[in-house]
Design a protein around this nucleic acid. Structure first.
Length: 420
DNA sequence: TCTGGGGTCCTAGGACCC
DNA sequence: TCTGGGGTCCTAGGACCC
């Protein structure tokens, strides 16, 4: 048995934690660079604001209804997410943190619980009590069904936010009332194709011949259908594997024309990507750099990327930044209004594995490793205290965050003086 | 004026091996 | 007329997730 716990409009709930005056009022949280609405309070949803809608199209609505707007504050949301996950780990020995606002719990060993539904309420109440975040719980014999049950818990307030579909009878009822595109693994394209075949509900999908699903689609959808029928095909992943690809990219607050500014941004993004790389004890041997103009603008378009293989896997920020800047110089064309840049690390291997090479000197020497470790330690305590000069200091291109809430939880300037 | 960021998996097709 | 069989690896593209 699995339970899926999913926080309600998580980013909005995080902001409300420090702004209790906003309870019951329309609130939205924007994507990076204050671009789109990515989280909406129920009141904002009721006003017709769609997920992912560009905020500039909503200016009128925001003014008319006095909607409160926040820029994303991921440092804060990650902090609160960690607290919620810690609470869940107290309540259940086996937890898979699936995303910033979702976790699967393995309920197999919860047989002692009188009722799983009661356990679901216990989870929901604990998150509310210790973290102040509202959540819903879906309980089912497969992860796909648990996701669907959670959706029902969110959609129907009469459930109290907990839906348990352990019995076959309840499962059938759930499948019948859920449109097929609410199923985990069915996106926009599959939805279109399925509807054209007369598969409209989750129930239709579950009862379609497996063989045909595999023929017309792929093993993925066949597996989804099996899961809907109560056959568990997707295991709980308590310790997710290291990333095979690490990306850091951002849109600029204003158009960027000069190579110097692009180089600063690439240096910053690579610095961040290298931090993520070291955090998972890995090294990368292939880097990608890309720059592009805005596809929405009515100006000359340019989009280009360079990939650079390195002689050795490395996680040394200096080596990675140097290579990335070489890549940037190769693809930069003057005369364009750049809107976004980014870097990607791939061909990733674990740090403990070292493939020696007769002809190239080692990049990640002991000295380099110590230096990176020290920088990381310092920056963990005092964010962004140490960085390469190539990151720049003005950074006029940095993403817009005009509605950022204070760092209630993550600001280091509030630390006692003694620690500074 | 203003449109996010970061991932994974599967498949088909081509190149290559014996 | 008739032209084998069995593999691996890589990449691009398309789909999905949050």
């Amino acid at each position: 048995m699995y339970a899926l716990t999913d926080m309600n409009c998580f980013y909005v709930s995080c902001e409300r934690l420090f702004r209790p005056d906003l309870a019951g009022k329309p609130v939205v949280v924007l994507s990076n660079n204050d671009g789109c609405c990515v989280a909406r309070s129920p009141e904002a949803k009721a006003l017709g604001i769609k997920m992912g809608e560009p905020v500039f199209k909503l200016q009128g609505l925001i003014k008319r209804h006095g909607i409160t707007v926040f820029s994303s504050n991921y440092a804060s949301y990650a902090n609160i997410s960690n607290r919620v996950m810690a609470v869940l780990e107290q309540l259940c020995p086996t937890v898979e943190v699936y995303s910033i606002d979702e976790a699967f719990l393995d309920l197999t060993d919860m047989a002692c619980e009188a009722s799983l539904k009661g356990y679901g309420f216990k989870v929901k109440q604990a998150i509310a009590q210790y973290c102040g975040i509202p959540a819903c719980v879906g309980i089912a014999p497969t992860k796909t069904l648990a996701k669907l049950a959670n959706h029902a818990a969110k959609q129907y307030p009469s459930t109290g936010g907990v839906v348990d579909v352990c019995s076959k009878k309840v499962q059938t009822r759930l499948l019948q009332c859920m449109p097929v595109d609410e199923v985990w693994g069915v996106g926009r394209r599959l939805n279109q194709k399925l509807r054209a075949m007369g598969i409209n509900t989750a129930h239709d999908l579950a009862n379609y011949p497996e063989k045909l699903l595999r023929q017309h689609f792929s093993v993925m959808l066949e597996r989804t259908a099996r899961e809907l029928n109560g056959e568990s095909c997707i295991a709980l992943e308590e310790h997710p594997p290291a990333k095979q690809q690490i990306v850091c990219s951002r849109s600029f607050s204003k158009r960027v024309h000069k190579l110097k500014e692009l180089a600063e941004s690439i240096s910053c993004y690579m610095t961040r990507a290298a931090e993520k790389l070291r955090q998972q004890q890995s090294r990368a041997q292939l880097i990608n750099v890309f720059i592009r103009t805005s596809p929405f603008a009515d100006t000359p378009q340019y989009s280009c990327g360079a990939s650079l293989p390195l002689p050795h896997p490395t996680s040394d920020t200096r080596v990675l930044v140097k290579a990335a800047k070489m890549g940037l110089e190769a693809i930069y064309q003057p005369g364009f209004a750049y809107a976004k840049a980014g870097v990607m690390l791939s061909d990733i291997s674990v740090s403990s594995f070292n493939q020696a090479d007769l002809f190239t000197p080692e990049i990640d020497t002991q000295k380099s490793q110590h230096l990176m470790k020290t920088i990381d330690q310092i920056n963990r305590r005092f964010p962004k205290a140490l960085f390469l000069a190539s990151n720049g200091t003005q950074r006029g291109w940095q993403m817009a965050r005009h509605h950022l809430s204070p760092d209630y939880l993550t600001s280091w300037s509030d630390l006692p003086k003694a620690r500074l």
